[in-house]
Design a binder for these strands. Structure first.
Lengths: 232, 232
DNA sequence: GTCTATAAGCAGATAGAC
DNA sequence: GTCTATCTGCTTATAGAC
């Protein structure tokens, strides 16, 4: 006998809003649609959120917080000073980021953000502000710090500007598979969701990246091999 | 005395549609807005294009064709076989791609596409089909071929799958500056439009990329230096 | 080919009963 | 807090005069 517990209206709204905004984009979704899918009344949106724009911002920040706790992005938090450890941690980081971004149930948030963020400053400066700080604070910034500390160990004499570009190169290579997914699938006839494809991408990407940072091949190969054994 | 030639209605519509779709995204723009900005009657949209969706597709493909003729992406078309030449051409290619993508008047097309393409398959499969083939055929595919031929010369023994990933890494690093522009500017407090910033990005990116491909540092440095002298 | 006028419907938001 | 009913304005698309 299942006791079907009713999901609170506010949560139900955020949930259905998340699905619909990801699927269609902000402007293309109506509040009626959201309320219907949530199985609640249209008026509750005004009651709980005040406006469609507020519902959107609350939905996005909730998605952002729920899914992104840097979990699995590294194996150990202790101080790392040896290059071998840093190289290994970098591999774990890149693998996690790539899989996290491409995970179908995982990070639609990114796709959603990318879509909305470009038009937002002109249309709704307040929403833009809220979105940008949510992404930067809750997602990008912690990953940026983590990558910076690893790169600084691996390339101790690199100047700070170059380190920034290296970090952006690493993130850019990974997020390419989210932002360009429809084009990659058409051009290469592959499924970006497929685990096998992503594993191979990660291996090659890591090799490319670590050589790009100027690391010797032995260190690179060893770190990659070791990182494949980490359970995710 | 200027003779103010009237722009044909159809062209005027495509032009104002391009501006507005880039700025706000498909769903957030109304046909009235487009007609008003073009200084023509609302009815002409139905007359010339039949529907808003058709206007959108025609607008995008027109943008795509007009701006992207692989111009400046390479210096010479002749057969290249020496590694030095290929390395040099790769540098020119990456610089051009980066500047082309970030050019404010240049490639809003990319931003526009990225925004619309993710929701399109669910909402309007026909439009999705038209958009994807336009981008892949007119933009991605030629650049993919060009990069492949260069990478094949630079890394003659690489297996084809890895070459694909290398190509995607290069494009991903460049397009990161379009897709993540608002976040980069917030996080780093820089202007992605600034020429100086992009020049430095290009230098570092090229160094990183060519080392990632396994090229020796002397070849890399020489190719980068030479490519800086190419006028754009 | 371009105009005006208008149709038919949906948008977000509100008021007030319960 | 949740419901129904409704307001106001804007949406795309059409019909028909010129």
């Amino acid at each position: 006998m299942n006791i079907a517990e009713k999901i609170p209206t506010k949560e139900a709204l955020i949930e259905s809003a998340a699905e619909l905004f990801v699927e269609k984009g902000y402007a293309a979704v109506s509040t009626r649609e959201i309320a219907d899918r949530a199985g609640v009344n249209l008026g509750s949106i005004q009651y709980h959120f005040g406006s469609k724009a507020n519902l959107f911002v609350e939905t996005v920040t909730s998605m952002m917080r729920r899914r992104h706790e840097l979990k699995n992005y590294f194996v150990q938090c202790q101080d790392i000073s040896r290059k071998e450890d840093a190289a290994f941690e970098l591999c774990v980081f890149v693998r996690s980021l790539l899989f996290d971004l491409c995970n179908p149930e995982g990070l639609d948030v990114c796709r959603l953000m990318h879509r909305e963020i470009h038009g937002a400053p002109a249309q709704d400066p307040e929403m833009f502000e809220a979105l940008v700080s949510s992404v930067v604070n809750d997602f990008i910034s912690p990953r940026d710090s983590r990558l910076r500390s690893l790169v600084n160990i691996l390339v101790p004499d690199a100047d700070p500007f170059k380190v920034n570009i290296y970090i952006q190169a690493i993130i850019g290579q990974c997020s390419f598979y989210v932002t360009h997914r429809p084009f990659i699938e058409r051009l290469r006839d592959v499924s970006v969701n497929s685990r096998e494809y992503l594993e191979e991408v990660a291996d090659t990407l890591l090799d490319f990246t670590m050589r790009g940072l100027g690391l010797e091949q032995a260190l690179v190969s060893q770190a990659i091999a070791k990182s494949k054994e980490v359970k995710r």
